[in-house]
Design a binder for these strands. Structure first.
Length: 225
DNA sequence: GCGACAG
DNA sequence: ATCTTGTCGC
């Protein structure tokens, strides 16, 4: 029985987790549909103003063109707690996602997906809430262990937590620190890694995420926050 | 009790 | 994440 809600964020954490378990159990992970557009999300935090500046950059995955950009300011109603990032950054990001005009085939998150103590990082959360494929790409580890990937771009190793494979450490550039990729929703490990490598050809982080990062930081400064 | 700990 | 200048290296 799916919970009723008017706004995606009205789902409680338990609802969302139950919903994902249901989906993962009953919905075959079909081949990921063609990903033509991707929305990268990020948040910049103003320490003294106690406000979050969220942003999304929608790109054409094939050409790399920016199709849409959107920023929104929200208050920090929840503290940063490792494992509960969704409840700090989720509200403003979901609000932004609802306001996007461009159809989005993939949500790209700056954080974990499956590689989470409860297997439900922010990438899973947003993907499930919107019913859109999603992938988590984090710069550091929240939980789990892995061996060091080979030094060349494209090499990766499995990320394991409590006996589960929860993601992969992926080298996106020769000799640079790997990123930690994990499925969010409707994408498997190979899908996730393939997408991240496709989007991160020039820098360590996927280009859309870098753009989202710059977008929110510039916006925060423009707003005097 | 101790250490770890996305952004 | 944020607070911050210069600096080491390809």
């Amino acid at each position: 029985m799916l919970p009723a809600f008017t706004h995606p964020w009205d789902l409680t954490p338990a609802d969302a987790a139950a919903l994902q378990r249901t989906l993962r159990g009953r919905v075959e992970i079909r081949p990921l549909p063609p990903v033509r557009t991707a929305a990268a999300l990020d948040v910049s935090f103003s320490k003294f103003a106690k406000e979050l500046v969220g942003g999304a950059v929608v790109v054409d995955v094939e050409t790399g063109d920016v199709l849409e950009e959107r920023v929104l300011v929200g208050s920090a109603t929840f503290p940063y707690v490792p494992g509960l990032l969704s409840f700090r950054e989720g509200p403003v990001l979901s609000e932004i996602l609802m306001r996007l005009k461009t159809p989005v085939d993939l949500i790209l998150c700056d954080g974990q997906g499956l590689a989470h103590p409860r297997r439900f990082g922010i990438a899973c959360h947003l993907g499930v809430l919107f019913g859109i494929p999603s992938v988590g790409c984090a710069k550091s580890l929240l939980c789990g262990d892995c061996r060091e990937p080979g030094e060349k771009r494209g090499s990766s190793t499995r990320l394991i937590h409590n006996g589960d494979v929860v993601g992969r450490a992926v080298r996106t550039r020769d000799g640079v620190k790997p990123v930690f990729v994990s499925p969010g929703h409707l994408a498997d490990f190979d899908d996730s890694v393939r997408l991240i490598l496709r989007l991160a050809s020039r820098y360590r982080l996927p280009d859309p995420i870098r753009r989202a990062h710059r977008l929110v930081n510039e916006a925060r400064r423009r707003f005097g926050l």
